[in-house]
């Protein structure tokens, strides 16, 4: 325990935990990032400011400040129990469904703190889609699965909309002609792409993915990875993964959470993997820790 402390000098991590310089008040939609790298010009869509999450007395996420750029893939990596899923689920307020969960700090979506009194989490989730760890298609037909979100959100369900979503999820060719068979009859990888189609059918702005390939075989995993890169043309993608190679392959930015729910480093993916600033991050990436 004490030996580890040498690599986690509180000053050091405080200074670089966040890639943002505090800028109170000035949230314009097209505000560009002012990161150390200074390379990204994409506007920020989601931004956390000292966001902390507690489950009862237990702190699952340390105060986290981070900016997620638009139409890029942001990966969140870290060992299990490091708070990465907790962070993801606080973006679309899925944590609200857990009775004992409590949130401090701010989570801004297009500049608006989603934990403000006047924000309806249901309305929020209609703009931020989510794909889960285990494929979870409804026990309904493929068509009904894709149309579900449209129905829920009161949008028109057309064959065209269903086809578009399935095409974007790279599933259309495999299921064309059997749209009325059960979504549960598909293979694991197909089910997960069906869930992605279901999430993008209502056309959200952000897609949150919680280890979407962890339950899949290598072939299905690589299909999902290709698809994620494809989706980033139109959507902002935030993906939680424990697979570091996956994060390196598909993401533009990477955030590393380590034990205790602490965001240790956040930056351009290439930089994080080639030249991490923190010893702990390097240890984790090279497999010495976690």
């Amino acid at each position: 325990m004490t030996q580890d402390m040498t690599t986690s000098d509180p000053d050091e991590s405080d200074g670089t935990t966040a890639s943002t310089s505090p800028d109170p008040g000035g949230f314009s939609e097209a505000r560009t990032q002012t990161t150390q790298e200074g390379t990204s010009t994409a506007p920020t869509v989601v931004e956390s400011r000292d966001l902390a999450v507690y489950y009862g007395d237990e702190q699952a996420l340390q105060p986290t400040t981070m900016e997620i750029p638009e139409k890029q893939v942001t990966a969140i990596i870290g060992p299990s129990g490091c708070g990465k899923s907790t962070f993801l689920r606080s973006i679309n307020r899925m944590n609200d469904l857990i009775d004992v969960a409590r949130v401090e700090g701010e989570l801004r979506f297009r500049g608006k703190n989603v934990y403000d009194e006047d924000v309806d989490p249901v309305a929020l989730r209609r703009r931020i889609g989510m794909v889960f760890q285990k494929p979870n298609p409804f026990p309904k037909s493929i068509r009904e699965n894709v149309a579900y979100g449209l129905n829920v959100q009161g949008k028109e369900v057309t064959d065209e909309a269903v086809e578009t979503a399935l095409r974007r999820a790279a599933l259309w060719e495999e299921v064309e002609g059997k749209l009325d068979s059960s979504g549960l009859d598909l293979s694991g990888g197909q089910q997960q792409r069906l869930c992605i189609a279901r999430a993008i059918a209502p056309d959200p702005e952000v897609i949150l993915m919680d280890e979407p390939a962890s339950a899949l075989d290598p072939v299905a995993t690589s299909q999902i990875e290709d698809l994620i890169e494809e989706l980033a043309r139109d959507y902002t993608v935030v993906i939680v993964t424990h697979n570091m190679q996956q994060a390196a392959r598909i993401s533009d930015k990477t955030a590393v959470f380590l034990t205790g729910g602490e965001l240790v480093e956040f930056g351009e993916t290439n930089r994080i993997f080639e030249n991490p600033e923190h010893q702990r991050v390097e240890d984790y990436i090279t497999g010495k820790f976690g």
């Binding site: 309305a123 929020l124 209609r126 889960f132 979870n136 409804f138 869930c195």
Partner: peptide, 10 residues
């Protein structure tokens, strides 16, 4: 997981 899928869609 099915409930979450539905809540996640708003």
């Amino acid at each position: 997981s099915l409930r979450e899928a539905s809540y996640g869609l708003g």
